[in-house]
Amino acid sequence: MTTTEAPAPAAADAPPGRRTRRRRGPTAPQWAAVGFAAPLLVYLTLFYAYPLWRNVDLSVHDYTIRAFVQGDAEFVGFDKYVEVFTSSTFPTALWNTAVFTFASILFQYAIGLALAVFFRSGFRLSPLLRAMFLVPWLLPLIVSASTWAWMLSSENGIVNSVLGAFGVPQINWLTSPGTALLAVTIANIWLGIPFNLVILHSGLQSIPGEVYEAASLDGAGPWRQFWSVTFPLLRPVSAITLLLGLIYTLKVVDVIWVMTTGGPGDSSTTLAIWSYREAFGTGQPDFSPAAAVGNVLIVIALVFGFLHLQLQRRQEES
């Protein structure tokens, strides 16, 4: 990646055609480059920019399913946004999104890091076991979500059965307002551990072994080594991992929808779920508020996205 701009000496003995790049206006090789990138540019315009534009358009009109087909929806400006912000679901969805996202990435990261450090020592079978840890991440989300739904089911679930053996009374994980968000968060933490493990493990590989040898010569035990060597040196990778996790978790729909559909009531409704439910989850699609919620979600995702890019740029400079 970093070698893209590196071969400056190679440019010196490049054919003369390349040196004309300094002049204004595209050169022949640059036209070739545009040609090779053309399918992508057309693709991004048609299948990213246009749907996103349609989405903005949806949010400032009053679209019903009929107006959808006929294309005669009334322009309502920011009314739909006002409707969304003043809705009683908004504070709940915002709070649930925050709890779901932060609890998920915090535990995914902590568990992923602990496992990465554990697997770093490279004992027998460790590559095989590490590979098996990838399984939850590769399964289709709907498969994992429905498995968790059955495991957490009130009467026949294995989780309640095990807890019951220790004398815990039956917990209605998915159907009581107090535990629904907790249940989907647990499932989501499980889903995210492999991603964190793989990235953090490969981050650990880039810490030279001599650093640890020096630390242990200085008499640092494993605990001390972790906090004064591993953790500080891993900070750039950790920051990127957490931010990527954040961006992914903000958009989660499948897991929550399959397990609780955001219920009971609004108790496990996040912004993404709210948007999905308004547009596709009920018999009566209400696209305009759904698009408004979706656009609010984009803004939140982009704020953290830019933070990520900023962080990455600063790392490249250092």
Partner: peptide, 19 residues
Amino acid sequence: LLVAQMIPAVVMAMGFYAV
């Protein structure tokens, strides 16, 4: 391209539906 990866699928789904 980095920004494109941050856009929630549910938003893309609505846009695609409208198109």
